[in-house]
Design a protein around this nucleic acid. Structure first.
Lengths: 135, 135
DNA sequence: CCTTGAGTCTGTATATACTACAGACTTTAT
DNA sequence: ATAAAGTCTGTAGTATATACAGACTCAAGG
C-alpha cells in the first residue's frame, strides 16, 4: 500500500507538497499537473496521485530541471520510457549546472578582487566604480 | 582625452557596447540609460557618455549586479557617493553569489549521484525517476 | 438564523531581464 | 527609381512564479 486514496483541497496539497498555494494552480495552467475533478461547488479535489506528481515536480525543480524538462520526464513516466533517455536529460543538466557554477565562481573572484582594492570610507573615489568604468 | 565626442545610432552603440540592439531601448525605458536627443527625423543620437554608461551596465551585469543595483551605482556616480556604500553593495553581491554557488554545487552532486545509480539501457525502470518519486 | 472569518474561485497584474515582431517611415545603395 | 537596410513605435512573448481584487461558499459561534 503505497499511498492512501486521500483527498486534498488546494491549500492542503500545497502544504503537503511544500509548494506555494498559487503555484499549484500555475502548474495546472502550464500542464504539469492534471486538472483535478471539481466538487459540486466548483472546488478542486486533489488525490494522492496529484500529491505524488507535485512532489516529483518540486524535487525536479530543486535539482535544477526546467519546467519543460520536468514535463518531459512526466510524459515519459506516463508512457513508455527508456532509462537511457532519462539519464541523458539528467547528465545534460549536470553540465548546465557545472557551467553556471564556473560562471558564478569567475564573477565572485572578480568582484572580490575589485572590492579588495576599495579603501572604503567616506571618500568619493572608489575603486569599484573606477573598475566598472574602465575602458 | 578619455573619449571623443562621437555620435552613434542605436545599432552602432549596441555593437560598441556589446549589448543587444533592443536592450538599448529597454535600458532607456527602465531609466538606466538617459533618453538621448533626437535628430530631425526622430532617430536617437547617442554620445560617448551613453557608451560609457552602457559599458558600465554590461560590466555590472557580468558581475552579477541586478539592474536595480546598477541603477543605484549609477545614481551614486552621478551624485555624491561614498566608497563605503559602493563596497557594501559589492560585498552583499559576493555573498549572494557564494550562496548560489553552494546551492548549485549541492544540486550537481545529488544529480550526479542519482545518475550514477542509473543503469541506462532500454529498460523501463529508472533509478532517477524512482528517486524523484521517493517519499 | 445570522454573522463573521476563512477558504476557494476566476482573471489579471506584478516581478526580472530581456528579446522579438508587426507595420510604418526614412535613409542608403545600386 | 527602386530595393534593401535601418529606425521608429507599441505590444507580445519568454521563464517561473507570486499577489491581488471581487465574488462566492463554507464552517463555527452566539
Amino acid at each position: 500500500m503505497a499511498s492512501q486514496k486521500r483527498e486534498y483541497t488546494r491549500a492542503k496539497i500545497a502544504k503537503a507538497a511544500k509548494v506555494n498555494l498559487e503555484t499549484v494552480r500555475f502548474y495546472e495552467k502550464i500542464g504539469l499537473l492534471p486538472n483535478p475533478p471539481r466538487a459540486a461547488n466548483g472546488y478542486r479535489t486533489y488525490s494522492s496521485e496529484h500529491l505524488k506528481r507535485l512532489n516529483f515536480i518540486r524535487r525536479g525543480r530543486e535539482l535544477g530541471f526546467s519546467n519543460a524538462e520536468i514535463g518531459n520526464l512526466l510524459k515519459m513516466m506516463d508512457g513508455n520510457y527508456a532509462c537511457d533517455q532519462v539519464k541523458n536529460i539528467a547528465l545534460v543538466n549536470v553540465s548546465v549546472i557545472a557551467n553556471k557554477i564556473a560562471d558564478l565562481t569567475r564573477m565572485k573572484l572578480t568582484l572580490e578582487a575589485i572590492a579588495a582594492e576599495c579603501r572604503g570610507g567616506q571618500t568619493p573615489e572608489c575603486a569599484i566604480i573606477d573598475k566598472l568604468l574602465e575602458s
